[in-house]
């Protein structure tokens, strides 16, 4: 069976919108927007994250994202990458809302420019500002169940703990905390950032995540479009395994062939 057929009826919802694909992809770091669009298609993604920046006044004819990765094909999820305060995040997303009318957004407030881990105190403050401004906010966060619950109580539309630092490709560093966050959350939980290869995405989904968000793992693969396809299948495989329920682990071997009837 083609993997794309699996999970057709297994949708998930965030902020009242329903999606079938459980793989959200970023649009940064690609060779060009054409490769970017091809990778998003190969990933089967329905949502793509996008950043907001000043237009290049010296060359207004340069390629534009929206001409390749089209807003009528993908749900744009504007991010606050590069913001370090709540006010910067609100200003950025208000402009994003004006640029396209989206109120479903990804909040990320970073603490520094080296490990890029989130500043959770400022993230929580920014979340409250954005909710007061009418946004539906999917929140990039640390893998701390205590802060994850505070975000949910403040009205986050989704909790998105980092598997590992953004762009590090290290995979899930704290399964215990991720499991606690999944167990306690009533809104969707997505691993966002730190995925390195397909097995990382499988593990996130087997752990019970609702979806996975990644950028660098696809964009920096030797063949990004092929890796996008691999990630699509990985997310489906992990989700199906989660739904199927894995076998119990044993200490000793247990033969698959009957013990009786031996010649």
């Amino acid at each position: 069976m083609d993997g794309s057929v699996l999970g057709q009826d297994d949708s998930w919802s965030v902020a009242g919108r329903t999606f079938r694909s459980r793989l959200i992809v970023g649009t940064g770091k690609y060779k060009d927007y054409a490769q970017n669009a091809a990778a998003a298609e190969a990933a089967g993604a329905e949502i793509v994250t996008v950043a907001l920046r000043r237009v290049n006044l010296s060359d207004p004819s340069q390629p534009m994202l929206v001409d390749h990765v089209k807003p009528d094909r993908f749900t744009f999820l504007p991010n606050t990458a590069g913001c370090f305060t709540g006010e910067e995040a609100v200003r950025t997303l208000r402009l994003a809302r004006e640029a396209g009318g989206w109120d479903l957004v990804k909040l990320e407030v970073l603490s520094n420019t080296q490990h890029l881990l989130p500043d959770m105190e400022e993230t929580l403050r920014a979340l409250k500002l954005l909710i007061a401004d009418g946004f539906q906010v999917m929140v990039y966060c640390s893998d701390d169940p205590v802060y994850a619950l505070k975000l949910e109580e403040a009205g986050a539309a989704a909790i998105m703990p980092a598997a590992a630092p953004i762009g590090s490709g290290r995979g899930i560093q704290n399964f215990l905390n991720l499991g606690l966050i999944i167990e306690q959350s009533k809104v969707p939980v997505l691993v966002d950032a730190g995925v390195g290869t397909a097995s990382d995405a499988v593990l996130a989904m087997e752990a019970g995540c609702d979806a996975v968000l990644m950028n660098t793992a696809i964009a920096e693969a030797r063949d990004p479009i092929r890796m996008a396809g691999a990630m699509k299948h990985a997310v489906i495989a992990g989700r199906e395994a989660f739904l199927a329920g894995r076998m119990a682990k044993r200490t000793y071997g247990d033969p698959s062939s009957p013990k009786g009837g031996l010649i």
Binding site: G26, T27, G28, K29, Y30, Y33, N36, T49, V50, A51, L52, R53, R54, V55, L57, M64, L65, V66, V69, F76, P78, N79, A81, L95, A96, A99, G100, I166, G167, A193, L213, M214, N215, T216
Partner: peptide, 9 residues
């Protein structure tokens, strides 16, 4: 300030 969407994660 004039801004637009670009690629990002």
């Amino acid at each position: 300030e004039i801004v637009h969407f670009i690629g990002g994660g």
